[in-house]
């Protein structure tokens, strides 16, 4: 690829991700549809199969899905420089918009009707969080392990909060990850012994 073509490709990559960062409402999952439309359907930079692999990886690695996808697609299309530019591009609109809002936020909230609107939005955010959680629960495999972990963690976290005992969510995630590994080895051991399944 000539130097000029390479520069143009990187510029296109930057603009595509900037556009996605600026116009996606509602977080990572809304972004996935946009990404597919832009890079698989329109630009054909990524094959459908690669894209599905990418989604699975983005969801299984820590960090916002939007950033993971930008870094991955950026690297596949334009190498390390591509990944840096894509990630920067997807972050910049948020950073700019939120920084500006944060400066004026308190003045803005001092208008009575703005405060009322925000009271409404806060009630809606509660709904959005719970329904996102329920939707994710439905997408899990239906088995005893998932059911027990989910309910045990919900009860534990609500109790800890109500009795104001602080316990980091990060520990809960790590503990459950380790339980997953233990369950896996137990199921292997049972299979070897021929006692189960």
């Amino acid at each position: 690829m000539s130097k000029k073509a390479k520069t143009q490709l990187l510029l296109k990559l930057f603009l595509s991700f900037f556009k996605i960062g600026a116009f996606t409402f509602g977080g990572g999952y809304a972004m996935i549809a946009l990404l597919e439309n832009e890079f698989v359907e329109k630009k054909k930079w990524i094959e459908k199969n690669d894209f599905l692999d990418m989604i699975a990886i983005a969801e299984s690695t820590p960090g916002p899905v939007a950033i993971n996808s930008a870094t991955y697609i950026g690297y596949k299309v334009g190498g390390v420089l591509g990944s840096i530019l894509s990630t920067l591009a997807v972050v910049l609109p948020s950073l700019t918009i939120i920084y500006i809002i944060s400066i004026f936020f308190d003045k803005f909230l001092s208008f009575e009707y703005v405060k009322y609107a925000f009271n409404g939005i806060k009630a809606c955010v509660i709904y959005l969080i719970i329904s996102a959680g329920i939707k994710m629960y439905k997408s899990l495999d239906k088995n005893a392990f998932n059911l027990i972990i989910t309910f045990a963690v919900i009860v534990a976290m609500v109790m800890l909060t109500v009795f104001s005992i602080s316990f980091s969510s990060i520990f809960i995630i790590l503990i459950c990850g380790i339980l997953g590994v233990i369950a896996y080895f137990l199921s292997l051991a049972f299979k070897k012994g021929g006692n189960e399944k």
Binding site: I130, F145, S169, G180
Partner: peptide, 21 residues
């Protein structure tokens, strides 16, 4: 296997954050 353990815990953390908020 690790991710299989992590997934339900993340779902639970989101739902419990929704409840307590």
């Amino acid at each position: 296997a690790f991710l299989k353990g992590v997934r339900p815990s993340v779902v639970a953390l989101i739902i419990s954050a929704g409840i307590t908020l």
